[in-house]
Amino acid sequence: MTPFFFGSSDRQLFGIYEAARCAPVKGAAVLCHPWGPEYIHAHRSLRQLSNMLAAAGFHTLRFDYFGTGDSAGDMTEARLAGWEADIRTAMSELLDITGARQVSLVGLRLGAALAATIAITAGAKVRSLVLWDPVLRGEEHVRELHLESPPGEKAIKPRPRAPEDGGGYDILGFPLTDQIESEMKALDLIALAPALPARSLIVASHPLPSHDGLRRVLDENKRDQAIEFIADHPPWIELPLGHPLSGAAPVKVLRRIVEWLA
């Protein structure tokens, strides 16, 4: 496991590279994380996924978008277009490190929506795409973020932010500025579904009203993909300390992703 910074000096990104631990090498994969508090709680599962992929023969790169995790910048400066550019930078970095010619993209929640956008435009560079509990409708995602609250404590409601600080709301300590909220609301993965790469896996562990819309569009367009529903716990949601699944990775989902990619 190699932690390192990459990208330009004014947009330093933090990543962790894990080389494939078995031969033959089956490919290279970039993992794309969800937004704000969801990433904090899902970090453990994404690390586990990276570890499992490396054991299955994949070179993997996990990384933090600009303004998130250990990468440079502040969340208030972030834009979705910038995060999409960061995914492209991470893909180039992984291709450069490994000598691979294609990468697979694996995205969780918002990361899945960003990865899908990239996969549609990147063409042959993307070998396959995994959408793990993807954000399908941005409006729905923003509504969910506003309702998320930590367990076992009094509900921590979103707090309005000052307009001079970008406005919007603090969601569990993360700034969802007016700018990024409006960009998130404009996300519509269902509209993009007909253009998804042929080799795409859509896996869901958390039912959403928007799933029906995606199923309909996939059917109408005679796509081979379907939403695979796997009953497992959503790792981006904080469970109370002492809960049997607190800190646990959703092993069934992770196994399915690795098996499908391999």
Binding site: R44, G69, D70, F174, L241
Partner: peptide
Amino acid sequence: GIIHRVGHHR
């Protein structure tokens, strides 16, 4: 706890 080195809400 089990939150990685960036800490709660970074």
